[in-house]
Amino acid sequence: MRVTVDRDRCQGHALCVLNAPALFDLDEIDSHAYVLADPVPGELAGSARSAVENCPEQAIAVAD
């Protein structure tokens, strides 16, 4: 599974970081999210999907 953050849509809510700290962090310069682990390790697939479903900006996408 691959996970991506659309940095144009991302507004830095940080919910992905709170929900899936192993997969996302915030950029120290612009506070937008970036992906820590791509491809997504199998055991984190559920976390990746949860990040997609809880992003207020619909900025995160996963693809198998």
């Binding site: 507004q11 830095g12 809510h13 949860s50 479903e53 809880n54 992003c55 207020p56 900006e57």
Partner: peptide, 15 residues
């Protein structure tokens, strides 16, 4: 709730 992309803190550039 599995899908909770609420806008309680607003959304868009002024979140």
């Amino acid at each position: 709730r599995p899908h909770n992309a609420h806008v309680g803190f607003a959304a868009g550039p002024h979140r």
